[in-house]
Design a protein around this nucleic acid. Sequence first.
RNA 1: GGCGCUAUCGUCUAAGGGUUAGGACGGAGCCCUCUCAAGGCUCUAAUAGGGGUUCGAAUCCCCUUAGCGCUACCA
Length: 479
Amino acid sequence: MVRVRFAPSPTGYLHIGSARTFIFNWLFARKQKGTMILRIDDTDVERNTQASLDSIFDGLNWLGLGWDEFYRQSERGELYAKAAWAIFDKDLAYRDFTPMSAGGEDKSGDAKAAWLCNPGMRELSRAESDRRANAGEPFVLRFRVPREPERTITFTDLVYGEQSKSTADIEDFALLRSNGGVTYHHASCVDDADLRISHIVRGQDHLSNTFKHILIFEALGVEAPRFAHLPLLTAPDGAKLSKRKHGPVVSVTTYRDAGFLPQSYINFLCLLGWNPKDNREKMSIDELVEAFTFDGVNRANAVVNFSEEDPIDPKALWLNSQHIYALSVPELAAAIAPVFTAAGYQFDEAKLLKITPLIQERIKTLNDAVGAADFFFVDELAPYDPAELTPQKGDAAMALRVLEAGRTALETAEFNHDGLDSVLRAQAAALGVKAGQMFQPIRVAVCGRKVAPPLFETLEVLGRETCLKRIDQAVLKLK
RNA sequence: GGCGCUAUCGUCUAAGGGUUAGGACGGAGCCCUCUCAAGGCUCUAAUAGGGGUUCGAAUCCCCUUAGCGCUACCA
């Protein structure tokens, strides 16, 4: 039975790299008909914030994938302490009474022995250790990494393949802190064991930590889960993404607020470091579940291609437009309705359903809908330059003739595609102008700009009355 | 510094001994066309460097370089 977990620590907003880790876990769980667990790793009481927890749920809820089980480490404290002392009782851990300030600084570098463990502490007799602890001396509980003889720890990562590291290169890491708190490594492993996690799918930043984790699982007397590490997401300069340095691009909610469809953002994140091997790009959630394997995961870090001018990766934008195009009209209408409402426009569903297909292939984000369709909603068009009314290779006089003839024609025309098409083309012929020269002044008159959806459908949705009124206003502008 | 991981177009990636090194985004151009899109076609651009192994390396091995990660009583 496959059981995977996503274990964020609430010390910041939901990072897009974390979101991707969640997604890969979820995809694997669904593909394997397994269980997806959300576990909040909040063992660092100093750095946890409620705002951060809220932001994680915010982001996860927007993605909309969900999870099957939920846990919080802060509620499972006894478990970790119990497990830690069990390890101590097996003599696989020892008390380190070194004061917190000492040792830490120049451990890096020269003296390797000093880096592996604090002098004297590893060898402390049990009796001496107990005596000092009973005397109230603070200590951290350290794992006794087996070193005489040294051992090579190995495992097969589902993404990175065979991995090995000598215990001579693993320092005696902490399990319990001097304040009684538990460390990440320990809590994480105890929980993974307790929750019977079958596969740990996480960022590659934990690849080297895995050797420590395997040691802990061993000490716990359980079989270690399988591991799959994911390449990291970086900024264009190769640096890891950070809010302070790169701003809102690192937060999932930024994409939600920019008008992304969650399924397209999920699709985009999946393509960063994974691919289905068959050149598919735009994929639905179901297709992703069906296609997902760890074999398709790449090993090199992936760059999120944003810049200061454009905080959105162009490929994400393109994918979003593809997903928007894949939506049915009612689906898209439902998605853009809140955008229009937020812009302060009044409308009914019937009207929205008529407008939606006109802008569907013209918007890359949901937010683009306002700019693409605003003229359908306003009573009065925003002021525009009358020069815009002048058609290609024509002049203001031609614009005037076209508008007046067009107005007359529209008074009696049938307001549907075919009716408008034939009537306006006939007018163009009668005036001796090209169809485009006929359409453009009318388009500008009714839309207030040159770039707009196809003319006949636009006129139809606007209705005869509005069209005639706006043409009259355009004629006035020209005179 | 030590240990580990990685290295194909600007970006995301395919090709896991034999290909004109493929696709996508972006950019450029053409077609289509009532504008804008969408769509179609074409072009642009890559195997970090050096050694091996082999009849033959993007692919396997070694070295160099570069980047990233870990090296906390953070996660």
